[in-house]
Design a protein around this nucleic acid. Structure first.
Lengths: 188, 188
DNA sequence: GTCTATATCTCGATAGAC
DNA sequence: GTCTATCGAGATATAGAC
């Protein structure tokens, strides 16, 4: 990816999160990225295309981080645990990106994302859970239900941790204790 | 509230949910409500004011419904249970409204809502949980943490239930079984 | 209170030189 | 690839008659 393209994406992230899609004209994005209006439209044919490209870029970033944290050799519980904990760490360290993903999900732009793109990104997590059900480590619930319970747990904890200021130590403790609560809920 | 005002709010709800804030011009809202553009701006001085008024109206609707379902005489577990179950029923029966609340939360418009308005709306739930901790029925966790875990559980289950088509009977079963999972997680 | 008509403005997107 | 300049569309909000 070209340098300017990255700058545009970075500027768009900041501004979309701060002012919303409607409140962020492409002219401001270009200005903040230090490029001209015309250049922005050279890289992204429309504003909509920019919104989607930023979404994909952000998701890819998160997926890459998570993949790097999880060792396929670990036993299942540890892989699920790491997946949980590092999802939270990533979210806490990349709050704008995490927020942006949700912002897109609660906007009409989500309709422009091919379903298979979204599916591909959840496939990893579904796989872990499926494996857990199969191995009779997890409760025999529909895997999508397990997935939604785990994801929403992560989202909830994120809300809690960002609503107040905690020390990194305390955050770690809360995350680990919350995982135990979650694990006891889903394990067989 | 005047008839036309209601029509405008109803039209705004439909259109905002379908096309987003940016994708919904006030002219379309007025047209769909069957009133003129000028009339819309008679009731709501700005588009922003309409967005916020719709948010407050929607929240009030949900609160009124929940209050009506819960009997203060019931024992605590039942009140929490009813609060959980009926939150889901309301959400399932009022999907546009439930979605709209989240849409506002993930938009810059949320900044225009006075914090005390949001606080007032969660106070009821926090009170229930506080009572549970005090009575040593619930785990001695920070009440905000309990609250976020319960809320996100509701949101997650809502996602699951709306992602596929289930019969009303099956929905009921899933909701009740999920409450047991949640309850076992938070109870002492 | 409700309408029609319109002012004013800003934005997304393009054209074309370099 | 990058810029400047600009067009045309469509938005919010107002004015003023009824």
């Amino acid at each position: 990816m070209v340098e300017k393209e990255k700058q545009i994406l970075a500027a768009a992230l900041q501004l979309f999160v701060a002012f919303g899609f409607h409140g962020t004209p492409t002219s401001k994005i270009a200005a903040q990225a230090g490029v001209s209006n015309g250049t922005l439209f050279h890289y992204f044919k429309t504003k909509e295309e920019l919104i989607i490209a930023l979404y994909n870029d952000t998701k890819a970033d998160m997926s890459a981080y998570l993949s790097a944290q999880i060792n396929g050799q670990d036993r299942l519980e540890l892989r699920i645990r790491k997946s949980y904990i590092h999802s939270l760490y990533w979210a806490l360290e990349n709050r704008e990106k995490f927020y942006y993903i949700q912002q897109v999900h609660f906007s009409p732009h989500v309709a422009s994302i091919p379903p298979e793109v979204i599916a591909a990104q959840t496939e990893f997590h579904l796989g872990l859970l499926r494996e857990g059900i199969q191995a009779e480590v997890l409760r025999p619930l529909p895997v999508e239900l397990l997935f939604t319970l785990v994801s929403s747990h992560v989202h909830g904890l994120y809300q809690y941790l960002t609503a107040s200021a905690f020390t990194a130590d305390h955050r770690k403790t809360v995350i680990e204790e919350s995982f135990v609560l979650l694990w006891d809920m889903i394990r067989k």
